[in-house]
């Protein structure tokens, strides 16, 4: 089984973000980066499928800055066999431009499966996977939290609002992986050392024209401090009054 996994380098979310003085983008200084969480589960899914099949390969594709090689190496440390970086220094807001660049890279690869994370936790667009599928003319199954591949067909369970859905699809196909399918493995030390020697191809990303650009960014307003209206049963009438008149939630 030949599998490609598309991953994104995203800022680690524990840090406090700041917006640049011109308001056009977030401040990069001091941020730490990692592989998007959903993409980690996509990598894990690919590795498990390869291990179960006892043969095959897992190739990682990432579109991002030169430093994103670190994320590709991490995927290799987990067990991916090879990687391609489609390099760009631009911050890309046009999902279609990203999808076109990825599709161009993937189209002649002969992959049985192309996996994505359901969503990138920085841009939250959820569009790249389905767009790539469309551009490649392949079936796409989104939000997969259970997966079974047998021969030339697959069976997946998808998350719906308050329900789930079972679908079948022929291979090759594009899947977007949701929370709950697996828990990603930690890279072993030997894996980290072995990753250095695996092939990593760097080429410029063919992004083309971008129809969407970000004009401005803003952080949510700081929340005001809470207020203690009193203690015990005596405080309840005042609390109810405020919830009705001020917070207007009752």
């Amino acid at each position: 089984m030949k599998i490609a996994v598309c991953i994104k380098r995203v800022p680690v979310m524990e840090v406090k973000f700041a917006i640049t003085a011109d308001g056009s983008r977030y401040e990069e200084t001091g941020l730490k980066y990692d592989i998007n969480d959903f993409d980690l589960w996509a990598i894990e899914a690919a590795l498990q499928l390869k291990e179960k099949a006892g043969a095959g390969s897992v190739h990682v594709v990432c579109l991002g800055p030169n430093a994103a090689q670190e994320q590709i190496r991490k995927a290799m440390a987990m067990g991916a066999d090879s990687g391609t970086l489609l390099e760009t220094d631009a911050r890309v807001y046009d999902g279609l431009a990203v999808a076109r660049a990825l599709a161009a890279e993937l189209k002649d690869g002969g992959y049985d499966l192309v996996l994505f994370g359901r969503v990138a936790i920085d841009s939250m667009n959820q569009m790249t996977g389905p767009m790539v599928a469309e551009l490649l003319g392949l079936p796409v199954v989104t939000n997969v939290f259970k997966l079974d591949i047998g021969g030339a067909t697959g069976r997946a369970e998808r998350v719906l609002e308050g329900a789930s859905e079972v679908v079948e699809f022929p291979l090759p196909a594009v899947l977007t992986i949701d929370d709950g399918l697996n828990k990603e493995r930690l890279p072993s030390l030997k894996g980290i050392m072995a990753a250095k020697k695996k092939p990593l191809d760097v080429k410029p990303a063919a992004l083309g024209e971008q129809a969407v650009v970000a004009r401005s960014m803003a952080l949510p307003p700081e929340r005001a401090a809470g207020r203690i209206v009193g203690e015990g049963a005596d405080a309840v009438p005042e609390l109810v009054r405020l919830l009705q008149t001020e917070a207007k939630v009752l």
């Binding site: 524990e14 840090v15 406090k16 700041a18 401040e27 200084t29 001091g30 941020l31 730490k32 670190e70 190496r73 980290i192 050392m193 250095k196």
Partner: peptide, 24 residues
């Protein structure tokens, strides 16, 4: 320069010792 970043998020890496480590 750490102008806008929470120091604690850096696990006390005020001197960015991370930068002196290799990727591995």
């Amino acid at each position: 320069a750490l102008p806008s970043v929470d120091l604690t998020a850096h696990a006390a890496d005020l001197f960015n010792i991370d930068a002196a480590l290799t990727e591995e």
